[in-house]
Design a protein around this nucleic acid. Structure first.
Lengths: 196, 196
DNA sequence: ATTTATAGATTGAATGATCAATCAACTTAT
DNA sequence: ATAAGTTGATTGATCATTCAATCTATAAAT
C-alpha cells in the first residue's frame, strides 16, 4: 500500500465526518462548517480538496457502499467460491447486505438521506443507478441456477433488491426494530419455491 | 358535508401545492414562496393559516396517507366485510397500499421525502409512528387467523409492512420500474406457508 | 548544519445569495 | 362598517463559496 498523501488523508477525514453528520443530524443539517468542525479542520479545506460541497457529498455517498461490496467479495472468498452463481453465492451476497457489521444504523441512515434525493440530485442518481444495477446483477446471477424458468431470475433479483432496500430503510427509521435474523427469515420466505 | 370555509379551502390548496412541489422538486426545494406560487396565492398566506411552514408540512405529510386508509375501508365495504381478520381483509389492505390509483409516483415520492427525515424532525416522527403502528396493527389483525402460531402474526405483520415500504420506495425512486402486479406476487411469496 | 526558496496546506473573515417570518397596508365580502 | 382575507416589501438569520494572509514542510544551496 502506497503511503497516503495529505490530500488522501484529508479527503477520507472529510468523507467520514460528512457521513457522521448526515447520519446524526440529516442531510439538510450537514453544512460545510459542521462537517469541517467534525473533522477537526477549517471549513475552507472542503473547497480546497473537493472544489465544492456537492463533490464531497457525492464522494461520501459512494463511500457508503464500498464495505458492502468488500464484504460480498470476502464472503465469497471465505467459502472458497469461484462462481457467483448458485445458493452459496446468494448467501454471500445477502449476508453482505444484512450482517450487523455492515447494516449499521449509521450506514443505513446516511444511505437513506442520499437515496431520498436521487430524483432531484443528478449526482446522486448516477451513484444510485450504478449501485442498483450491480446489486440486481449480482442477485440475478446468483439466483439463476435456482429458478426453473430463465425469466424468473431477473424478476427474483429485483424482488430481493427491493426487500433488501426495505430492510435498510427499516434499519434507518426504527432503531433496533428489526433483527438481522428476522430480515433473513423474510428473505428466505421470498425464496420459497412454492410460488414458482 | 358542511360548506367549506375559505380557511379550509386555502389549507387544502396549500397542502396540495406543498405535496406537488415536494414530489417534483424535493423537500429541500420546497420553499414557502414556491408552494404559495403553486397554489396561486401569496407567500404570506402560509403563515396566516398555518402559523409557520413546519405546520403546513406536517399537515401535508398526514394528508398523504388519508387515501390509503380510505381505500382500505372502501375495499372492505366493497366485499361486504364486517371483520378485519382473515384473507379477504388482508387483500383489502394490500390492495389499498398497492393499487395504481393509490400508489402513484407523486404520493410515493412525497412520502419518501418525509420518512427520510423522521429521525431528525420530531413532527414527522410522530406522524410516522402513528401511521406505522396502525398499518402493522391492521396487517397483524388480518393475518392472525392465517398463521399457525400466535407469535407469528405480529412478525408477519411487520414483514408485510417492510415489504410494502420497499415497494413504495421503489416506486418513488424508479419510475415505472415495477408493476403493481409484481409487487403483489412478491408479497404473496412472503405469505407462502411453506416457511412456517 | 544552517539558511533560503518554494509549494502545499490551512485559516477565518468577507461576500452574496436564499429563505422563513413579520407586518403594515390594501382588498373583498357580509 | 366591520371583519376576514390577502399582498409583498422588509428583516434577520443561515449558508456556500471566495480569497488574501499565514503557516508548515521539504529540498536545494551555501
Amino acid at each position: 500500500m502506497a503511503r497516503q498523501s495529505i490530500e488522501d488523508i484529508r479527503k477520507i477525514e472529510l468523507i467520514d465526518a460528512a457521513l457522521a453528520v448526515i447520519a446524526e443530524e440529516g442531510h439538510d443539517a450537514a453544512t460545510t462548517q459542521k462537517i469541517a468542525a467534525r473533522a477537526g479542520i477549517s471549513a475552507g479545506i472542503v473547497h480546497h480538496y473537493f472544489g465544492d460541497k456537492a463533490s464531497l457529498l457525492q464522494a461520501s455517498m459512494r463511500a457508503i457502499r464500498k464495505p458492502v461490496v468488500r464484504a460480498y467479495v470476502e464472503n465469497l472468498a471465505a467459502q472458497g467460491l469461484t462462481t457467483t452463481a448458485g445458493r452459496p453465492a446468494l448467501e454471500a451476497c445477502l449476508e453482505a447486505h444484512l450482517s450487523p457489521a455492515i447494516l449499521t444504523v449509521r450506514r443505513a441512515a446516511a444511505w437513506l438521506q442520499f437515496t431520498a434525493r436521487v430524483a432531484y440530485v443528478p449526482d446522486y442518481a448516477r451513484v444510485h443507478a450504478l449501485v442498483r444495477n450491480r446489486q440486481i446483477a449480482a442477485l440475478t446471477r446468483a439466483v439463476r441456477p435456482l429458478v426453473p424458468h430463465q425469466g424468473d431470475a431477473v424478476r427474483m433479483g429485483i424482488r430481493l433488491a427491493v426487500a433488501l432496500d426495505g430492510y435498510w430503510m427499516e434499519c434507518a427509521t426504527r432503531e433496533g426494530g428489526l433483527t438481522a435474523k428476522e430480515a433473513r427469515l423474510a428473505i428466505d420466505a421470498l425464496l420459497s419455491d412454492s410460488v414458482w
